[in-house]
Design a protein around this nucleic acid. Structure first.
Lengths: 338, 338
DNA sequence: TTGTAGGCGTTATCAA
DNA sequence: TTGATAACGCCTACAA
């Protein structure tokens, strides 16, 4: 078994109280004693039992994040960067990061949130892939459990969030495409109950409207935020009697799939057939042709979320509650060619 | 505060013992009582306190994984897939996944492992990016703490692992390049104390030797497993008076960087200048030109690791202790051209 | 089949 | 400045 505080106390002929206080840095213990205790504890290899500490302190120093994994095989570089940001910032605040995967809406997802929040396995949670009406938001708000979100749902709860104005920035992609002369612009989106889908589709329509282009339902497809989904939707679009000259995708992964099918069909992506993404996944600037996209600072956004969550857990007032992130329109060869 | 087992017991005029046993499914409680207890507990929204349970049971039902994050900004799709695999398989065994990031060899890393293992925050850990002599392996083996690794270190400890024969498969890449007529083949590797570097470099040398090509130290560079590192090393190689005609990279991210610089220099990657990777990151088959690489089933490997770790934690005998994974040589346009 | 009681390792309250 | 003692919420001999 492991060394406990008791062992250290016994060795020093001190009470466990004193040892505990010395280690936790209380100021009502003599310098001499503290020094001795810390040294001995270290020598003996004492490490506080986390469960006991949690039980007593009523906090776990852990934050939770559940990956919205629809597919059995779930791999999107977005999340590597996102998780790295969460983990790095969590460390800085002395938190561990607990991660799980669950299909959105599944009972597994419900149970995980229950266990984590009511079972107090975590002190707060980070949400993303927010839905228009999101049960998680309602559930956590009602339980008064600390949480932050990437993107805001339409639920009328008050909670801190980080957001990119998807509608505005997607419209900028449309502006860009129209400025290149495109008139038949398709859109490959995602599940309609996702907030990003609603926003980005709205931006798409705004863009069409502004330039007096008609909305053509046959050019608007639903993908699934994977390259496979993009591939299939892209295939459908290229098979149309009169295919689009530009395809605006809801995210970078979808755009990857479109690049793939375009290539297979011998279509040169660039001026002739323009393709855009959204996210700015690191590494994807190296695809060929490099992808025109809206580049979001995913890592920074994740860190910002954890920062806000940590403040909330510590009941500190937040300097900013609704953070707007300004992404960057990256114009690359997938729209302008060589 | 949350509902405790006490609250449920009081409401039903039962002892907490009975409630506990009913919920945990012991068979010495009447069907009637069990039904009542479970129903009431559910209604009241009772969820067992994880800390108390952990303290009592002496296990956390959690496994840990620390990302070897050298850089402040750490994003490699390899890990998205790896973590997804860990998380999915962990869920199946009733484990949560605790993730942290720490620079390899840092004191933060030491402390994290101490806290997690001796503090019993996790029941077992998964390691990767193994070093030739890895303090983590030695530390965990000495503490007799359950762990599994992706790749094996040279330490003479006995522990379960999953491995791809990097030496053998890297040599196959060399065979492929030579078969295309390349004579000046460069290698961009990683930190020399990494196991994958040692293996893959050995494979590189094996390949040269087998085909009677001299080892030329000026063609062997050290990268850092990022696309930036690949970019810089690639730049250096292309600046040589007599640049290589093929560049074999230690991993896919490095290869991405090489594709990038080659493109900037107006060099067409394919027959004229061949580039290879290693890992088979999902999504990278869509880069252009698609990358010739060794495709490892990362997701499966992660699941296999957790499977073995779970067995080890449960003290079940492992059917296989040293799992060899057979990857696939994916020949794509980055070596054979259009 | 159910209840009593002790303890897991810490921290916090209070008194010495 | 230090120590005894009581929780924290749960599980489990053991007793009834």
């Amino acid at each position: 078994m492991s060394i406990t505080i008791k062992d250290v106390a016994r060795r020093l002929n001190l009470s466990i109280t004193t040892v505990s206080r010395a280690i936790d840095g209380y100021d009502d213990v003599s310098e001499e004693t503290r020094h001795l205790v810390i040294q001995t504890a270290h020598e003996m290899g004492y490490v506080p039992n986390q469960a006991a500490r949690q039980l007593r302190r009523k906090r776990s120093d852990t934050i939770g994040y559940i990956l919205p994994a629809d597919q059995p095989r779930f791999s999107d570089p977005f999340f590597a960067e996102f998780i790295a940001g969460l983990g790095d910032e969590a460390s800085m605040h002395g938190f561990d990061l607990l991660v799980s995967t669950a299909p959105p809406g599944s009972s597994a997802e419900h149970q995980a949130y229950e266990r984590w929040t009511h079972g107090r396995k975590v002190d707060g949670v980070v949400l993303n892939r927010i839905q228009l009406n999101d049960w998680r938001v309602q559930y956590l708000a009602r339980a008064q459990f600390p949480f932050v979100t990437l993107e805001r749902s339409l639920d009328s709860c008050d909670y801190p969030s980080v957001e990119v104005n998807g509608r505005l920035w997607f419209k900028k992609l449309l502006d860009h495409l129209v400025s290149l002369g495109h008139q038949r612009i398709a859109y490959i989106g995602a599940s309609p109950n996702l907030k990003i889908q609603a926003d980005r589709l709205a931006g798409y329509r705004d863009g069409l409207a502004q330039h007096n282009l008609a909305y053509d339902a046959s050019l608007v497809l639903e993908g699934d935020l994977t390259s496979e989904g993009g591939y299939r939707a892209g295939e459908h679009l290229l098979n149309l009697p009169k295919p689009p000259t530009a395809i605006a995708c809801v995210d970078d992964m979808t755009a990857m799939g479109v690049l793939h099918i375009a290539r297979q069909r011998g279509r040169t992506v660039g001026k002739e057939l323009a393709v855009t993404g959204f996210d700015g996944i690191a590494g994807f600037e190296h695809t060929q042709p490099p992808l025109t996209t809206i580049n979001q600072p995913v890592y920074q956004m994740a860190r910002c979320l954890v920062q806000m969550l940590a403040d909330q857990i510590a009941r500190k007032p937040l300097p900013e509650k609704y953070v707007q992130i300004e992404p960057v329109l990256e114009i690359r060869q997938s729209t302008v060619g060589e």
